[in-house]
Computed example of a mutant assay.
Amino acid sequence: MNPQPVSLEAMLQDTAELGGEVFQICDYPPLETFTDAELDRVRDAADELGLILELGTRGIGPRHLDQYLRMATRLGAPFVRSMIRPAASEPTLDEAPGLLARVVEAYADRGVVLGLETYEQLPTDVLVDLVRRVDHAALGIVLDPGNCVAALELPRDVVAATAPYVVNLHVKDFAFSRRGGWVGFTYAGAPLGEGLLDYDDMVRQVRPRERGINQVVEHWLPWTEDIATTCRLERQWTQHNLDYLRSRNS
């Protein structure tokens, strides 16, 4: 853990300095404790930096998604990412379509889109079927094909299956490397263009520029020898990946 954690405001500043245009506050539980005044300060900071805010969480419980809709509205965020968790406290897959249909009506009324991320915990065809059954413009899929490899799904197949329903992209590259002694593999992140992600094919199928879909840089950054070196490497990867995206989308 970083002994000097970066504040949310500093993350926004770094994003602007690196030339980013969108910042997704994703899997950041402290946000749920923010007062309206604190949320307003985050929105003001993003506005001053010219950044679009998005939110990210986990779970599809109606109360939880209602909370994130309220925060998204306060922050001026037009998008919320979530994911279906296989937990006893969560709605079942049988309950999910009806619950989501009611939730996304409220999201649509406030101009917010909800996206469910591809993950190894849920087969891609099940996720696609759920989105099809709800059949609402305010519900779609957050595509991250690297997540599904752990379920033995090929990234290219995941892209093809989800492309018509994608509303947000998590862009990260990934690669396998042999473990010490050549026993097994490590599956970890890689700088964009240096791993197994066929980025050009993904963009060809999803057409993010034509459809107004934001591309959010994400890392599976391997740990190095210490926190300072790891943080420097993270910034290098972020700059590299942003430059890569600009070179492919200009």
Rank of each mutant, 00 (worst) to 15 (best):
L75P: 06
D66H: 07
L39T: 03
L39V: 02
R74S: 11
D40N: 15
L39H: 09
R58G: 15
P86F: 02
R41Y: 08
H64C: 07
T57R: 02
A46C: 12
A88L: 14
G56V: 00
Q67C: 14
I60Y: 01
A37P: 06
T57M: 03
V42S: 09
L51W: 00
R41C: 06
I52K: 13
A88K: 00
F79V: 00
D44N: 10
D36W: 02
A72H: 04
L55R: 12
V42F: 14
V42L: 15
L69T: 05
R43G: 01
M83P: 07
E48H: 11
G50K: 00
A37I: 13
D40R: 15
T57F: 02
L53G: 02
R41P: 03
R85W: 09
A45C: 08
A37N: 14
R70W: 09
G76W: 06
R70C: 02
E38W: 08
L51F: 03
R58L: 14
F79M: 11
I52G: 05
I52W: 11
Q67W: 02
D40P: 11
G50E: 05
L53P: 03
G59M: 08
L69Y: 03
R81V: 04
D40Y: 03
L51D: 02
E54P: 03
D36R: 06
R81M: 05
A37K: 15
L39I: 01
R58N: 14
A46R: 04
R70L: 05
M83N: 12
L75G: 12
T35L: 04
R70V: 06
R70T: 10
Q67A: 15
V80E: 13
R85P: 00
Q67R: 00
A87Y: 12
R81H: 06
D40G: 15
E54G: 04
I60S: 05
R81Y: 03
P62W: 11
L65H: 08
D40T: 10
A72D: 06
D44G: 12
R63F: 02
T57P: 01
